[in-house]
Write a protein that binds this DNA or RNA. Sequence first.
RNA 1: GGAGAGGUGGCUGAGUGGUCGAAAGCGAACGACUCGAAAUCGUUUGAAGGGCAACCUUCCGUGGGUUCGAAUCCCACCCUCUCCGCCA
Length: 429
Amino acid sequence: MLDQRLLRDNPERIAAQLARRGVTIDLSGLQQIAREERNLEQQRSTLQAEGNGIGKQVGQLIQGGANPDSPEVRALREAGNRLKQQVAVLEDAEKSLEIQLREQLLTLPNLPAAETPDGRDERDNIEVLRWGTPRQSAAGETLEEHWQIAERLGLFESERSVRIAQSRFVTLMGAGARLERALISFMLDLHGRKGYQEVMPPILVNSASLTGSGQLPKFAEESFRCAEDDLWLTPTAEVPITSLHRGEVIAADALPLKYVAHTPCFRREAGSYGRDTRGLIRLHQFNKVELYWFCHPDHSAAAHQQITADAEAVLQALELPYRKIELCSGDLGFSATRTYDLEVWLPGAAAYREISSCSVCGDFQARRSSIRFKEGKHTQLLHTLNGSGLAVGRTMAALLETGQQSDGSVRLPAALAPYFGGAVINPPQ
RNA sequence: GGAGAGGUGGCUGAGUGGUCGAAAGCGAACGACUCGAAAUCGUUUGAAGGGCAACCUUCCGUGGGUUCGAAUCCCACCCUCUCCGCCA
């Protein structure tokens, strides 16, 4: 959520920044509301001060022995009543403006950081670097896509999963299930050694949590919902982790708080009919290991570099070639001010695919969730960052395509062997 | 699901309808003592909004109500805890 003071004083600046995202909006109406609200607040508080004075007078008179029914006291009581009515009217008007204002502010995305390059959509994103040598098919060699490999090796069931749930769900089987588990443990351990505290949060989250991290109110159609209970299946661990400290004031010297969590993530993938229908790339339920920082505003830019490096470290340890993309202003997610995407090379598909997104959200989520820190006497909003480290299913896809051998087996990176219990997946006998 | 108890500041925990934003303790900050530290003593220490200085308003789970005045009384809701039942 954006700062109301900035809205009152300088809506042009907000509009200019939102324009970089491709959001054109006239904020003069909102500014009016914000100013009118402040105006009412001032009037109301003056009247309340008057009323408090009357209350105090009455109290003193009665304690001093005055008759509660004396004309003097009665006159004061009547004055108090009149004030109370006036205050009630102002209060109602003020409250309705406040609600309007908040409702509308909650639908506005975050402002892009100064460093974020301008652009309209993903075509304007900037490639920052490439790591590793992408595997290309040798002469006469055909590289399979991961779902072909997985089917051949019996790593998952897709058709039977439709029976269990519906399309876009898979059941990992045998070595496939074991590899998923190995990857989760491997990632958690790797990040744990770098100072991230491991957490396993609820994956059903309430509306307040989704609002706090920015998924509501605008993106309700992206999440699965248990309507009876005001609970939703979390689309990312970013949601429960943000709310882990919702409403708190944290001591400055406790920052940064760094968390890593593995959770299943649930997304409706509305509007992606027909895309990535096979395999592990786009599912309603997938595993993800998420990195999350609560940090001091002065350190968030550096933290963004670090959290991205921590995600890259997983790809490097798994020997998976990737490239790092900086998103342009038009391609940023709702809550982000600046984002790096990591795209892993899929040799079978001969394409880079997103496997991690590392964003700094400034105070946007902190304001929605009221998460502050205290430094000396001052309490102020902190900054939040999140990054996938990594999306597990897509990691498996990359490993299968990268490690595929001409004999039909798949070779896994050495780092994974202790977790998986071997470095090769062989075809079934 | 049934019965009971309770929700107060960073934490623990008092609170009779009338200077209660709230005792006390802990924690924290500063100062004194000390070569330094501990201990001790003293002072300070909640948040949001508005003016941005004095100051004003609001906030004791949430929302209503009674009253000149509510942390305190009334109503509804939410949540937590304990016991029982059920259950991995």
